[in-house]
């Protein structure tokens, strides 16, 4: 396991040496502060301005969900861009012929960042959430958002030829987050047009706390991952 950890440590070191990717990781904390303190302040101001009891309050859960998805999304985005840099520098194929191996490289670049993203998002959601969350719900939601964010890494790495393309595609990959607000604003059957997005089922799970949505969120993530992984694997050779 030592080569794997050393390779992962180098990966993290490279991210920290890259000011843009470092800022991408820090952006999560800044967003958390904005949601925790900015949204309630805005709510207070809007309510007094429009003389209403609640305007944004009904969407506090959506803000929390956005925060829960934002953390692994940003981490996996940084991870994908660093993988593209390593791909440009031929590091990826070289590490595959060292004791790290191809499998080790995939684990250290996909699973480890998602694992760290899970821990960080649990901490962030515990500290900065606007609504009340049970410990189990935090763990389940953060696990699901972390798994679904692996899709981002796979997607960006597989479909970009270089880092610049990766950044452009990063914006497009934000579509995967689009499922979050759908159950909040669409309550009729048209909401199921977004059922191919794991984020849609994650939001449904949070709203109704029905276990079937957990399975559907997991299933859609696994389907996405298995589809893109084939292309990812071909690019890795």
């Amino acid at each position: 396991m030592k080569p794997l950890y050393r390779s992962f440590a180098m990966f993290i070191k490279q991210i920290f040496k890259d000011s843009m990717l470092f800022m991408v990781c820090i952006a999560v904390v800044l967003t958390a502060f904005f949601i925790r303190f900015g949204i309630p302040a805005a709510e207070k101001f809007l309510c007094s301005y429009f003389n209403k009891e609640a305007i944004l309050l009904n969407y506090y859960l959506l803000c929390d969900l956005f925060l829960a998805l934002m953390t692994p999304y940003m981490f996996c985005f940084a991870s994908a861009l660093m993988m593209l840099t390593e791909y440009d520098e031929n590091i990826a194929s070289f590490l595959a012929v060292t004791p790290v191996g191809k499998k080790g490289y995939v684990i250290s670049r996909l699973i480890f960042p998602a694992g760290i993203a899970f821990i960080v998002s649990v901490i962030i959601l515990s500290i900065f959430s606007l609504t009340e969350w049970s410990v189990w719900m935090i763990i389940i939601i953060c696990l699901l958002t972390s798994v679904s964010s692996v899709i981002i890494t796979l997607f960006l790495f597989s479909f970009s030829h270089n880092r610049v393309e990766g950044m452009a595609l990063g914006k497009l990959s934000g579509i995967l987050m689009l499922g979050l607000p759908v159950p909040f604003f669409l309550t009729n059957k048209f909401q199921y047009l977004f059922s191919f997005l794991p984020s849609f089922w994650i939001a449904k799970l949070c709203i109704s706390e029905n276990g079937i949505y957990l399975l559907l969120a997991l299933a859609t993530s696994v389907i996405w991952i298995s589809i893109i992984y084939k292309k990812f694997s071909r690019k890795m050779i």
Binding site: M10, Q14, E89, N90, I91, S93
Partner: peptide
């Protein structure tokens, strides 16, 4: 490999 595989930074 034919092409260098090194960390440029």
């Amino acid at each position: 490999f034919e092409f260098p595989s090194l960390y440029e930074k």
